[in-house]
Nucleic acid binder design. Structure first.
Lengths: 115, 115
DNA sequence: TCTATATACATCGATGATCGAGGCATCGGC
DNA sequence: GCCGATGCCTCGATCATCGATGTATATAGA
């Protein structure tokens, strides 16, 4: 599972959202470290729905249609297992980090290696 | 920074390693959740070196040459800032997870969404 | 001695993922 | 009326990764 997919599930785990909101929520949640575009997120939401990880329904707000996505039980399980893997990896990272001090800036802003 | 890059820096943060060892260490460290192949890792190590994140030197062990990579100060800083971003994301994930129980299986084995 | 696996490095065409432009539409503010 | 935000969506171009392929040597077992 890529980071983008993970954070899409993460924000939908918090509450159901429509596509445009998901894009914004992922960027805000990760402070710009993971910023998939609409070109990535809309197809991803459709794939998740096709795979049974999400359901969707249309809402109308102020005369405007919104396609609101909700995590299914299958999606919740997938997210929770991904979280466990994340936390296991966190333990390893903390162990690796123990020999060095921490810095307090976003890694995306730290000129990460070749992109 | 992709997960692969992150974990390559992570394992090299622990100790200097040659390429083949890096591939194995990343897979073991992440329990298979992130398993970049040699086709990914060797070019990545060369890019990191070209970018000043790593240095390398040749060792000879039992008559066989090894190219051992060592994290530079620049690489250490990049890794540490990535760790901080990871830990910030972990806080958000834990908050998101608070409403649901945890499961104890690897997310790669949980039929993740469309790959 | 032969075979198979592990070790060790490396390249690159094929494949998969992502981006961003482009398109359509409506609302709200100036 | 114009512009930015909101809301959805597609797809060609670009980027990242894989896995096959190649070379070489060491080790283990038959």
């Amino acid at each position: 599972m890529s980071l983008s997919k993970f954070f899409v599930l993460c924000v939908l785990h918090q509450k159901p959202m429509h596509g445009y909101e998901v894009v914004q929520a992922v960027e805000q949640t990760t402070k710009g470290c993971c910023s998939p575009t609409e070109g990535t997120v809309y197809p991803m939401l459709n794939e998740f729905e096709a795979g049974g990880y999400l359901t969707s329904h249309f809402d109308v707000v102020q005369g405007r249609e919104r396609k609101v996505y909700t995590l299914t039980e299958k999606g919740t399980i997938a997210f929770q297992t991904a979280v466990d893997a994340w936390l296991e990896a966190t333990d390893c990272i903390i162990a690796s980090k123990a020999a060095a001090g921490a810095l307090a800036i976003s890694y995306d802003k730290a000129e990460p290696p070749c992109e």
